[in-house]
Design a protein around this nucleic acid. Structure first.
Lengths: 305, 305
DNA sequence: GTCACTCTTGAAAGATATTTTCGGTGCCGG
DNA sequence: CCGGCACCGAAAATATCTTTCAAGAGTGAC
C-alpha cells in the first residue's frame, strides 16, 4: 500500500481547497484533474458518483478513488460526504442579502426569505421591548377579571378576536368588538373588576380609543396594546403594552409587522393568564379540544397513509 | 438588546427538521423511529450506511429507504448527502438551542422569551419548507382571479380574514367565510377563473374542506394552506401550501404556532400578488391608506407630544 | 368474537456504486 | 533496442443501496 501519511488526519471540512493545493505537486496528472474538479465545484462534484466524476475528468474510477485517498479520506464515499458538507456551508455563507427591502421584481424565494426574516426581527424586537412589569399587571387584572372586552378594528381587530378566542378557551368570558358603536355600547356596561383591552398600532385610532375611554371612566381596568405608547390611547390605559414598529415599505404595509408584534403580546398575555388560572384553564383547554375533535374528519388525516 | 437571535431563513437542507415534524404524523411507527434518529443527530446518521441506520433504529433497510423517500429524496444516498450538509451547517452556525417547554411556574420574562423564540423557529421552518413553485402557481392564480373566497374556521378563520383584508386593499375582490353553511352556499357560485382558498392546520376540518370541494367541482382554482399536505383537504386543492408544525404543549396550543406559520404564508401570497399586479395594487394601497388617515386622531398621535 | 381486509414490515433477491486487482502502456536510462 | 518503473484504466470483487414479496399486525365489519 502507498501509505497515506498525514498522520491519519480525519476528513478536513473547509480546508479541502488548501489541501488540494498542498498536495497537487505530489499528484500525477490524472489525479490533478480530479482534484481540480473537486476543488473547483464541490457542490457539483458532490452530486456525482465515482463513475460520473471519472468520466467528467476523463479518468477512471480507480484514479478517483486514489485521489480521494490522497486527500485523506478512506474512500470516495467519504470524500463525497465532505464535499456535500462543504457545499452546504458555502451555500449558507452567502445569503446575508435579506436585509434589503422587498422589490417589485424580487423572485418569490427572496420574498419568502425577506418576509420571514423581517418577522423574526419583529418578534425579537417585541420580546426585547416588552415591559414584563406592565405585562404582569395586565395578566393579574385579566386573571381576576369577571369579564373581558377587547377592542380593535381592521388588522388589529383580528388580533382582538384572536385574544378573545384564546381567553374563551380557558374559561374566561371574553369578547372582541370591531364595530365602534357596539363597542361603546358595550363599554358602558363595564364595571370594576372588568377588563377592557384596546389594540391599536397607531395609538390614535379613535374608533378604539373611544370605547376604552368609556370603560376607563366606568371604572374598568384598561389595557392598551399599542406601538405608540405616547399616543392618545395611553391616557385611558391603566397598563400599556408596547409593540414594536418595523420599517415598512410600499409592498410591506405596516399592518404586517405590527400584527406579528401584537400577536406575540397577545400570546404572552394568554399564557400568563393560563398559568395564573391553571386549575381551571387546563381542564377547559382539554375540554374544548375534545369537543372539537369530531369536527376533524379522521379519513386521510390521523395515521393512515 | 436581549439577544433572542434568530439566524435568517435557513436554506434547503435546513428544511429537514421541519419536514420531519410535518410528515411525522403520516409516518408509520418504524419510519418515525428512523426520522427521529435522523432529525435528532444529522451528523451521526450521516456517517452510517443504510444497514447501520437500520440496525440503530431497530428496523430494516427497506424502512430506512422508505423514510428517505417520504422526506423527499430519491433514495437513502441522497438523504445522507443532505444530512452531511446539514451537519456541516450546524457545525459552522452554532446554537442548537433546545428551549425547554413552558412550565406553569415560569416567570413572565421566560414566557416572553420562549414564545418569541418558538415563533421565530416556526417562521424559519415555514420559510424553509415552503414550496415556491406551488406558491408561484397560487400567486399566479390569485393575480388572475376574478374573485377570491377564503375559508377558515376558528383560529384559521382569523387568518382567512387577514388574507381577505389584504387582498381587498390591493383592489381584489376577496371575502373570508367562517360560517360553514354560508361558505358552501358561496362556493356553489364559483366558476373558472375564481379562486377558493381553504385554511386548515389539521387538513381535515370538514367545515372547511366541504366548501373547497364544492368550489373545486365547480371549476374554480383551489388552494389549500395546511400543515398536513397528506390530509383530506389536499384532494380538492390544485395548489398546496404547507405550513410548519411545531411541537405543542399544554400551555402552548397548536393553534399558536400554526397561526404564525399560516400568516407568513398569507403574507407571502399577498406580496406575491401585489408584485404581479403592481400597476393596480400600488395606487389601491395608497388610496386605502389615505382614506383611513382621518380615522386616526392627530392629537397625541402622529408626531406631536 | 371472528373473518376479511388493508397496512406495515423485514428478509432476501436484485441493481448500483465503490473498491480492489491486475495487466497494459509509455517513459527513461542503459 | 531492452528492461525497469510509475501510471493508468478495464474489469472483477465487494460493499452498499433498492426493490420485491410474503408474512405479520392491526382494524373494521358483521
Amino acid at each position: 500500500m502507498k501509505e497515506i501519511f498525514a498522520g491519519g488526519a480525519p476528513p478536513a471540512p473547509a480546508a479541502l481547497a488548501a489541501k488540494v493545493r498542498t498536495l497537487a505537486p505530489s499528484m500525477t496528472r490524472s489525479m490533478q484533474r480530479v482534484a481540480e474538479a473537486v476543488a473547483g465545484d464541490p457542490a457539483g462534484t458532490a452530486a456525482l458518483t465515482v463513475t460520473g466524476l471519472a468520466e467528467l475528468t476523463g479518468t477512471s474510477e480507480a484514479t478517483v478513488v486514489r485521489t480521494a485517498r490522497l486527500l485523506g479520506y478512506p474512500g470516495y464515499r467519504d470524500l463525497r460526504l465532505a464535499l456535500a458538507g462543504l457545499a452546504a456551508q458555502q451555500q449558507s455563507g452567502r445569503a446575508p442579502a435579506v436585509t434589503a427591502d422587498i422589490a417589485v421584481d424580487d423572485p418569490l424565494a427572496d420574498v419568502v426569505a425577506k418576509l420571514a426574516y423581517d418577522e423574526q426581527q419583529t418578534l425579537a424586537d417585541t420580546a426585547a421591548g416588552l415591559d414584563t412589569v406592565q405585562l404582569g399587571a395586565a395578566v393579574a387584572a385579566l386573571a381576576a377579571a369577571r369579564r373581558v372586552e377587547v377592542y380593535g378594528v381592521a388588522a388589529s381587530g383580528l388580533v382582538a378576536q384572536d385574544l378573545a378566542q384564546k381567553l374563551l378557551r380557558i374559561g374566561q368570558i371574553a369578547h372582541a368588538h370591531s364595530d365602534p358603536h357596539l363597542a361603546v355600547t358595550n363599554a358602558v356596561t363595564l364595571r370594576a373588576k372588568d377588563v377592557a383591552i384596546a389594540i391599536t398600532h397607531s395609538g390614535s385610532t379613535g374608533d378604539v380609543i373611544e370605547p376604552l375611554r368609556v370603560a376607563f371612566e366606568h371604572g374598568a381596568t384598561t389595557v392598551a396594546i399599542t406601538g405608540r405608547p405616547d399616543g392618545l390611547v395611553s391616557q385611558y390605559a391603566d397598563h400599556i403594552l408596547t409593540t414594536s414598529t418595523a420599517r415598512e415599505s410600499e409592498l410591506r404595509p405596516a399592518a404586517m409587522s405590527s400584527r406579528t408584534s401584537q400577536l406575540l403580546v397577545v400570546d404572552c398575555l394568554f399564557v400568563g393568564v393560563a398559568q395564573r388560572t391553571y386549575e381551571t384553564a387546563a381542564p377547559a383547554l382539554a375540554a374544548s379540544y375534545e369537543a372539537l375533535a369530531h369536527r376533524h374528519n379522521p379519513r386521510g388525516g390521523a395515521g393512515s397513509r
